[in-house]
């Protein structure tokens, strides 16, 4: 039982990070039907911004996170303007390939500027405290990751459900042309979507830095892929689906390593993707709607 609770703690922390990244995927997909493969790399950029704000300006972890979110929000908008907007009316595959190009560009430009070696996230920014309760070790960083992820998700839910911007986002997602006719600025709404998604990724990046101590230019690839699976699992384009998908993925991986074989962990994660696509392609939260022709 102790072991199970410990694995639950491990899984929820990992799941919180996946969920935050998955949200960005799902928001962008929901609005312009683009799998933004550069999303994991935006997370990496966020982690580096957090790293430099701590090492160069000596900020605390919350300020570092806010700075990284702000930076990446602007950065995400620029990516969208430069790389995706000119392709909005071309085929979806063109935009997808561009996204892969942006991903590789971000990875290797970071290697070019900062070098390929990993950087150690300063431990002074987040001193670790361990709590041992009845054989279960919980660290303050587990709590930090979990709580900040939940808070950010609640803020996101609020923005989408109860603000005008959120309403515009939902409208654009539902039918872009009709939204234009209703006087919604589609360009602005898409920019905001990218800004919010990228900011969430940046927050996840800083969390990864705190949680795993090291950051490197290729750190976004694997979590990006896992979060993509999480988004598909929950139903891509559906925000609560991404949250649930993220936590399910985190718990699933943890339980496979903990009770099965650690070597099958990634196989199970990607096996889930295949199963979902075969059985319920719209995801756990997806509604079966006929393809509009």
């Amino acid at each position: 039982m102790i072991e199970f609770i410990q694995q639950l703690v491990n899984g929820l922390s990992l799941g919180a990070i996946y969920a935050l990244i998955a949200l960005g995927y799902t928001m962008v997909y929901g609005i312009i039907k683009l799998i933004n493969f550069a999303h994991g790399d935006v997370m990496m950029v966020g982690a580096y911004v957090g790293f430099f704000s701590i090492t160069l300006f000596g900020t605390n972890i919350l300020a570092a996170m806010l700075l990284a979110m702000l930076f990446c929000a602007i950065f995400g908008v620029i990516i969208e303007k430069v790389a995706y907007r000119p392709l909005r009316n071309s085929t979806r595959i063109a935009a997808l390939i561009t996204a892969i190009g942006v991903s590789l560009f971000l990875e290797y430009i970071t290697i070019f500027i900062l070098g390929p070696a990993q950087k150690v996230f300063p431990s002074s920014a987040f001193p670790i405290t361990e709590y041992h309760i009845a054989g279960i070790s919980i660290l303050n960083k587990n709590i930090f990751v979990f709580i900040s992820a939940v808070v950010l998700m609640l803020i996101l839910q609020y923005i989408i459900k109860w603000t005008k911007t959120g309403k515009a986002m939902r409208a654009v997602s539902l039918d872009m042309e009709a939204a234009v006719l209703m006087g919604i600025s589609v360009d602005k709404t898409i920019s905001i979507t990218f800004a919010i998604g990228s900011a969430l990724a940046a927050a996840a990046g800083v969390m990864v830095g705190v949680y795993y101590n090291t950051i490197n230019p290729l750190m976004g690839i694997i979590p990006g892929l896992k979060a993509f699976v999480a988004a598909v699992l929950g139903g891509i384009g559906i925000i609560p689906g991404a949250m649930v998908g993220g936590f399910v993925m985190g718990l699933l991986e943890t339980m496979v390593s903990g009770y099965g074989n650690s070597l099958y962990r990634d196989a199970v994660a990607f096996g889930v993707l295949i199963l979902i696509l075969l059985i319920k392609p719209t995801g756990l939260f997806g509604k079966n709607t006929g393809e509009k022709v």
């Binding site: 990992l14 090291t214 650690s262």
Partner: peptide, 20 residues
């Protein structure tokens, strides 16, 4: 006997198992 792969960063689950 457990395994990890290059670029893994989260070892908590397997370590918890080893701990038990």
């Amino acid at each position: 006997e457990e395994g990890f792969v290059k670029d893994d960063r989260d070892f908590n689950a397997t370590l918890t198992k080893i701990r038990s």
